[in-house]
C-alpha cells in the first residue's frame, strides 16, 4: 500500500500569554520568508492547508499557522471550565506578537482572514515595524451583528451544527464541494462558546472604524483581498477601508466567499501569488 504524507509538521508550544501558561499548536511547511497565518473566528489553522501544500508558496516561504488558544488542537488555559471565553483586541494583539517572537520570526509577512483580517488592521496601525507586509483577507473595520449571537452557545441548539450552518452561505458558489465541507467541518468541531467568544472581538471590541485611516503603509505595506460573495465582510466594506488608507492595495476576488484560502485554495492562490511576489521584490 502506498501512502502520501503532506509536507506539514506540527508541534505544541508552551508559552505564557496574558500571564497564564498556554499550550498552543503550531503547524508549518516550507522555507524562506516567514508567512504567519491567522485563521477565522471559530475555526483553526487547517484553513491554510492549501498554502502549506503548494510548492509555489513553500519554496520561498516558511508558512506558519497556529491554532489560537481554545481552537483546534490548542488547549484553553487551565481554569477555563469556570470562565466565559471572550476574545479582546488587546489579547489578540498580544497573542500574535508573543507567538511570533517565541518562534523567533524576523518581521514575518502576516496574513489573516476575517477576525484575522481585522487584527491585521490593528497590527498595521499599532505595530507596523514588526511585519514585512500585512495581507488582510475579508478585512473590514467593523461588522454589525446580524443575528442573535446567543444562539451560538445554548444547550437547546447544537453549537457545532449551528456554527457550520451559520457560516455555510459565506462560502462562495463555485467552491469545490470537498473544500467547502472541509471548511464547514472545522466550524462544526469548535468548542462550546468559542465561535461566539471570537465574535465578541469581531462585532464589538475590535471596531477600528475611527482609527483605520491612520494606518501608514510606508511603514508596512498593506494588501486587502476580499471575496465577492462575503456578506459578513462585504466587498464594499473592504473597499471603504482601502479607500481610507493611502497606499493600500485592494482586490475583490470573483466568485470567492469569506474563507478564500480554505474554500477554494487553487483559485485563491491565483490572487495571493502575485501579492507574495510583489512583497518579495520590495
Amino acid at each position: 500500500m502506498s501512502v502520501k504524507f503532506e509536507p506539514i509538521t506540527g508541534r505544541y508550544m508552551h508559552l505564557d500569554l496574558f500571564g497564564r501558561p498556554h499550550r498552543v499548536y503550531v503547524e508549518e511547511a516550507g522555507e524562506g520568508t516567514p508567512l504567519l497565518c491567522l485563521h477565522t473566528a471559530g475555526s483553526d489553522g487547517r484553513q491554510y492547508r492549501g498554502l502549506m501544500n503548494d510548492a509555489r508558496v513553500t519554496s520561498r516561504h516558511r508558512v506558519i499557522a497556529f491554532d489560537m488558544p481554545w481552537h483546534g488542537k490548542s488547549s484553553p488555559p487551565a481554569g477555563w471550565h469556570d470562565e466565559e471565553y471572550q476574545l479582546t483586541s488587546a489579547q489578540y494583539t498580544t497573542m500574535v506578537l508573543e507567538i511570533s517572537a517565541a518562534l523567533r520570526l524576523d518581521r514575518p509577512i502576516l496574513i489573516g482572514c476575517s477576525i484575522g483580517g481585522r487584527i491585521a488592521l490593528h497590527l498595521a496601525l499599532e505595530h507596523p515595524e514588526r511585519f514585512r507586509a500585512i495581507i488582510g483577507l475579508q478585512a473590514g473595520a467593523h461588522v454589525d451583528p446580524y443575528y442573535d449571537l446567543n444562539f451560538l452557545h445554548r444547550p437547546d441548539v447544537h453549537g457545532g451544527e449551528v456554527s457550520g450552518a451559520i457560516v455555510s452561505g459565506l462560502v462562495g458558489p463555485d467552491a469545490p464541494a470537498k473544500e467547502r465541507w472541509e471548511t464547514l467541518w472545522h466550524y462544526m468541531q469548535g468548542g462550546p462558546g468559542v465561535f461566539k467568544g471570537d465574535l465578541f472581538f469581531y462585532k464589538l471590541d475590535g471596531d477600528i472604524r475611527g482609527r483605520v485611516a491612520q494606518i501608514d503603509t510606508r511603514r508596512c505595506p498593506l494588501f486587502l483581498l476580499s471575496g465577492e460573495y462575503d456578506y459578513s465582510c462585504t466587498p464594499e466594506e473592504t473597499l471603504a477601508v482601502a479607500q481610507s488608507i493611502p497606499g493600500c492595495e485592494v482586490t475583490i476576488m470573483k466568485g470567492l466567499g469569506h474563507f478564500p484560502m480554505s474554500e477554494d485554495p487553487q483559485v485563491f492562490l491565483t490572487y495571493l501569488l502575485p501579492v507574495l511576489e510583489k512583497i518579495g521584490r520590495s
Binding site: 446580524y146 443575528y147 455555510s168 452561505g169 459565506l170 462575503d230 456578506y231 459578513s232 462585504t234
Partner: peptide
Amino acid sequence: PGSNDLLALVK
C-alpha cells in the same frame, strides 16, 4: 452576492 443565503438576506 447578498441573495445567496437566508442569512445574507437577513444581513
